[in-house]
Design a protein around this nucleic acid. Sequence first.
DNA 1: GCTTCTTCAAGTCG
DNA 2: CCGACTTGAAGAAG
Length: 877
Amino acid sequence: MVASGSQSVRCLESRRTENGHSAPVSKYKHGIVYAIRDFPPGCGRLAAPINRPGEHPVNEISGLQKDLPRGNIANSEKEIFPKSGVKSCPDQSSLRKTLARKYYPQGGVTVIRDFPPFCGGNAPPLSKEERMKWLTALKNKDTNLVGIASKENPLEKTRCTDVIAPEGSAPILSAEDIQSKMEEQASGKTKKQGAYEASSRNDKDGMHHTFENSIKSPFGSSLNEFDSESKKAEDNDFQTKLSDSSSFENQLRENDCESQEVLSDRWFLPDLMASTQLHGKVAFNHDLAGGSSKRKRKKSFTFLQRDNTKKTSSTKWAHQGLNKVVVWDKKDLFHGDGQYTDDSFGHVSFPPCQTSTGHHNDAMASRNKVREALRLFQAICRMLLQEQESKLKGEGKTFRRVDYLAARIFKQKMEYVNTGKQIIGLVPGVEVGDEFQYFVELNIVGLHRPSQAGIDYVKQGERTIATSIIASGSYEDDLDNSDVLWYMGQGGNVMQKGKQPEDQKLERGNLALATSKVVKNPVRVIHGETRSSGLSEGRCKAYVYDGLYLVEEFKQEPGPHGKLVYKFKLVRIPGQPEIAWKVVRKSKVREGLCVHDISNGKEIIPICAINTRDAEKPPTFVYVPHMIYPDWCRRTPSKGCNCINGCSQSAKCSCVMKNGGDIPYNHNGAIVVPKPLVYECGPTCKCPASCYNRGWGVRSLNSIPSGSFICEYAGEILEDGEAEKRAGHDEYLFDIGNNYSDSSLLDDLSTLMHDVHSSFHQVVPDSGFTIDAAQFGNLGRFINHSCSPNLYAQNVLYDHDDERIPHIMLFAAENIPPLQELTYHYNYMVDQVYDENGDVKKKSYCGSSKCTGSWHKANDLVVISAYGCSARTSFSC
DNA sequence: GCTTCTTCAAGTCG
DNA sequence: CCGACTTGAAGAAG
């Protein structure tokens, strides 16, 4: 998914671009901002053209662009950046295609106020009636189950009830068959042994069997009666009889009622009502009213109470964006007598709301643990990738799996999250919509253990139930419906093309899923999504956690190769937040469009503004995609490198040496680790535009991978003295200097990686300069603060060498799902923030457990979707 | 406890 | 871009 690679390079060459930049994100005075970027195929961080000084100013581009049909964006770029002697970029066409295909009808960047419909805070909470209606509808499909559960004594049932096939239905599995299957799991006997006996009885006794029979007849007693041929035949017969859920489920349930020790471990169930906040990372503190900072902080804001929101305990949680974790054990799910009642059924989805701070803190701690683990893992991956890019590729060696390598390092020296026995249901710290770059990340956070297999399961008492599945479309899963998933079972050599396909068997994951249908335990669903990045290099796949589902039914039918496959119908438990890419996919029309392009054509692709809340438009400011330097500012001219054939990690490149011997970016354009200052190649360098040490923006409609460049924080450069004067009136000041970075991440990296750089902990002295984006700014001015940010500010030099006034570039600190608010740490402490009277602003918290008490403003929501903005533009000062 | 098998990975290469 | 091929790891099964 990370855009880059050779095609990107060619694309870059053809455009003669220097430093591309993506998605500026702007800041509204009264809002939180969202920015989403796209990765045009083949362009990655190279997505947008750059104008060299003296070449094509951005405004020219924009002006030209403005008059062109949206679909001709790529063409326009070609015209703008003719390059003799360079073959035309093969990705121009793909870029055009992608733009046409993936972008919204408006064809550009969008600013949205409030959550998209049915998303995040707008996810419709279900009333109790609605919930019960849904559950009842689900339950009514299992009439046998309901009868057993609510009307009859399960113990009695297991002893005296014969299984009678419904009239006209396929032969159903005998009680012995099911019991055998279950006991096989528990006893370790071979599957076939159990099956043989069960089949044998089934054949002899027809459709009527008693559970008592199976108990009285232990396994293996009659095995010798069968020769291998009959065993084989009967095994097939057994499989056939397990081919649908109507038989399997009823039988399994009936026979299992004698002991409800199904789930001896804890189930983690989400407070689904509380999960309406999309991703719920930043809690909104209702106590925080608006107000402006006097110095060192941007933007005042006004809290607008959500309409019609009654502050029940659960909705309060929802507003705080917290996925409360409720721990249930079996006694909560089953009544004392083991009966599986309507009540307990309801509890699965709606545990009582508890708003104790203990739970809150636990949840936040878990969340931070997961995020920290993933960030660290991803940073290790990027460092390993950088290592391989510099060493192995040059020698023609093949790449090793950085994910495995990183996981090994990670596992040896750190602990995985949520280790121990498999968790059923909600995994602490993992939220719906979370994205993962590598399969092993699912293992690291305890979401899904297998390294390749799509179904994860755990033994619970005498049987095995499914805990999670990966639906990545490798099999013919039906992913169209957002709430219903038909998932194909495993096995049958469907994936192994070299082998002869055969019928799938009801074993392993398939059996676990079938059992989960009866047990009705929540099953986590993770979507493996292949992104059409059009790249020859770089990953274009991501895994998205979609939440909890219930297995509703399953069937066996011919698969694509003609052999029988199992198909499981999973239904999403309602009340969970919708994952963003589904919202994006569903959105056809953007309601509330109020500004077509807040950049006024100064970005390659327009940034439109949407406000679904009220009539307010974005505040007036002059959009500038680049920095504005005052007249007195004479920046040190950049001393470019002389790497005609491209820069490498060698002492020959002056730019690389300034970075401590490393190119700070991977070939896919992701920044490897935060640095005090990044020195990029710039206009005065002799290296080609394909040099990896040039900063180019990446964009994604779907998600932003960790390490991606987001945008520059552009504005006017001020001396601190001038900034002081403006403070109080100005909420868009950014102090240049030592930016906030996650020191714990760097500490952990130092511990884990051998060749850590001492520069990790270098401190950039206070430069004495400030960027003011109040009057002149770009999209970066819209990004809000969080104490648990998903972006970080990185000092970058590329067009001059004056270390006092580096560019402030924002990078993704973690995988960011679509529509998730982008935030970074403003790095202003509480005692630096003043109210209008000049008093130190009251200490407040953003809801993050890491909150340092800096001023947080967040309530009124604005979303900016920047589907491609300007590249990093050089400037003429 | 060891080996083998299975598995909706992830990379290169043609 | 697709599919074949290779390398690969974890857990279940044997």
